[in-house]
Simulated assay, not measured.
Amino acid sequence: MKKFSYFLAVMFLFTAFAPAAMASAPEKSNKEDKELTPEQEERLEEIKSRVDEIKSMDFSSMSKAEIKDVKKELRGINKETKAMGQGVYLSVGAIIIILLILILLT
């Protein structure tokens, strides 16, 4: 129990000081200011529609090779969207809260 309470104390310490440290760091590039070209916006819409198609697929009827190909395609799509600056990012505090909820529920 002591180890768990020490772990929580350290995590809360990190979450308390992380926003202040991130705010004082100089910004190298601001991804929110990055405007997409019309071609990139069109490609992003194609990617979104493909991801929706993949989400609606029935993986139980697919072979392992087909599932592997879909996973490889999704990894490529993820890399492409990160290059465009449209990736999904989680903060450290959000990850810690998710982990704490999972620990408390189990």
Results as ranks from 00 to 15, higher is better:
residue 1 M to C: 09
residue 1 M to G: 14
residue 1 M to A: 11
residue 2 K to N: 11
residue 2 K to F: 07
residue 2 K to W: 06
residue 5 S to R: 09
residue 7 F to S: 03
residue 8 L to T: 12
residue 9 A to Q: 12
residue 10 V to A: 11
residue 10 V to M: 08
residue 11 M to N: 10
residue 12 F to R: 10
residue 13 L to T: 09
residue 13 L to C: 08
residue 14 F to M: 12
residue 14 F to D: 07
residue 15 T to G: 11
residue 17 F to K: 02
residue 17 F to V: 14
residue 18 A to F: 04
residue 19 P to W: 00
residue 19 P to Q: 01
residue 21 A to C: 04
residue 23 A to F: 10
residue 26 P to M: 00
residue 26 P to K: 01
residue 26 P to R: 00
residue 28 K to M: 15
residue 28 K to Y: 15
residue 28 K to R: 14
residue 29 S to P: 03
residue 30 N to K: 13
residue 31 K to F: 14
residue 31 K to P: 15
residue 31 K to D: 14
residue 31 K to N: 13
residue 31 K to Y: 14
residue 32 E to P: 03
residue 32 E to N: 12
residue 33 D to F: 03
residue 33 D to I: 02
residue 33 D to T: 11
residue 33 D to H: 07
residue 34 K to R: 15
residue 34 K to D: 12
residue 37 T to Q: 09
residue 37 T to I: 08
residue 38 P to I: 00
residue 39 E to S: 09
residue 39 E to H: 04
residue 39 E to I: 04
residue 39 E to Y: 03
residue 40 Q to P: 04
residue 41 E to T: 04
residue 44 L to W: 03
residue 44 L to T: 04
residue 44 L to M: 10
residue 45 E to Y: 07
residue 45 E to P: 05
residue 46 E to D: 14
residue 46 E to V: 07
residue 46 E to I: 05
residue 48 K to R: 14
residue 49 S to H: 09
residue 49 S to E: 15
residue 50 R to N: 06
residue 51 V to P: 02
residue 52 D to A: 13
residue 54 I to W: 01
residue 54 I to H: 01
residue 56 S to F: 06
residue 57 M to H: 06
residue 58 D to N: 14
residue 58 D to L: 01
residue 59 F to V: 05
residue 59 F to N: 02
residue 60 S to G: 10
residue 60 S to V: 07
residue 61 S to M: 08
residue 62 M to V: 01
residue 62 M to P: 01
residue 62 M to S: 01
residue 65 A to T: 10
residue 67 I to D: 02
residue 67 I to T: 11
residue 67 I to E: 09
residue 70 V to N: 03
residue 70 V to C: 02
residue 71 K to M: 09
residue 71 K to Q: 13
residue 72 K to Y: 10
residue 72 K to V: 08
residue 73 E to A: 02
residue 74 L to G: 06
residue 76 G to D: 15
residue 76 G to T: 11
residue 77 I to A: 03
residue 79 K to S: 15
residue 79 K to W: 03
residue 80 E to H: 05
residue 80 E to W: 05
residue 81 T to R: 11
residue 83 A to Y: 04
residue 85 G to I: 06
residue 87 G to S: 14
residue 88 V to K: 12
residue 88 V to D: 14
residue 90 L to I: 11
residue 90 L to C: 06
residue 91 S to Y: 04
residue 91 S to E: 12
residue 92 V to R: 00
residue 93 G to A: 10
residue 93 G to L: 01
residue 94 A to L: 05
residue 97 I to Y: 06
residue 97 I to P: 07
residue 97 I to R: 10
residue 98 I to F: 13
residue 101 I to L: 10
residue 101 I to G: 03
residue 102 L to D: 07
residue 102 L to E: 07
residue 103 I to V: 11
residue 103 I to L: 12
residue 104 L to W: 06
residue 104 L to K: 02
residue 106 T to D: 10
